[in-house]
Amino acid sequence: MTNSTHINDVRKIIASGGSMTRFRSFLKQLMRNWKGRTGALILLSLVLLAIFGYLFAPYNPVSSNAPSFQPPTHSHLLGTDYIGEDIFSWFLVGAGTSLLVGASIAVIAITIGVAVGVIAGYFGGYIDNGLMRVVDVLLVIPGFPLLVILSAFLPPTLETTIIVLGILSWPFISRVIRSQTLTLRRRPYIMASELSGLSGLRIIVRDIIPNLIPLIFINAIFLAIGGVVAQAGLAFFGLGDLRSVNWGTMLYWFQAEDGIVYNAWWWLIPPGIGIILLGVGANFLSNAVYEITQPARGSK
């Protein structure tokens, strides 16, 4: 009973969008859902780690000041790597870079994907056909091999990785957004807006995008995580900027400098766990948002 009332509250809140109080009480509802609580806690701590982590780094991550391949000790909480750099510092500083990369990829992909999807779905006809054929082509190209090739040819900086990954991830988003727009497009209230003389763009901004926000939110989180993982994957293969301090390059140097031969588990596990936690947190959070916005499915 109480559950269903607050679900109604949330739908109202999500429905309204906008003001701070509504947002705050949306958060309240999220906190009542155990998945939402867990997911938000995990992601929030990782974000805090990313933003403030470097302040607590005991050493400069890129200066060697200890023996190499030293297991965890008091002075080096997570041991040292092959040239004696402090792994705990690498982990803290790397969190910031990794999450920034993920977030930037999400922003690029969501911006392009939502714009293309909504325009294709709303205007239909030749515009839809044209845009969707472009999307088809991009979707058919196997993503990771293309990434590898592009990264090999473009200058190996972090920006390149971000742009390449961002541009390669939007087609999928635009597909999802387009199909949802198509169903919204048929709702009579969109017709009512058209009849009152609103232009297509205004209808998109006023009637369509607000109804897509839960979908955009869930996709953005997954894109960000996907971005972190893809960047780590590229770095693992030695592509992108290898001098950058992030979780992906940690994994690269682990395999390139024979971490496994020295049985240096303390070098492998921190970035691995960081990435896994991101994935778990994102799943929990998106499940919770889904349950709240689709109360018919119910939640426990």
Binding site: R187, P188, D207, N211
Partner: peptide, 12 residues
């Protein structure tokens, strides 16, 4: 006035 009273009002 449309037939479906739910679909014809924007929930947001």
């Amino acid at each position: 006035v449309f037939q479906d009273p739910i679909g014809s009002l924007n929930p947001r």
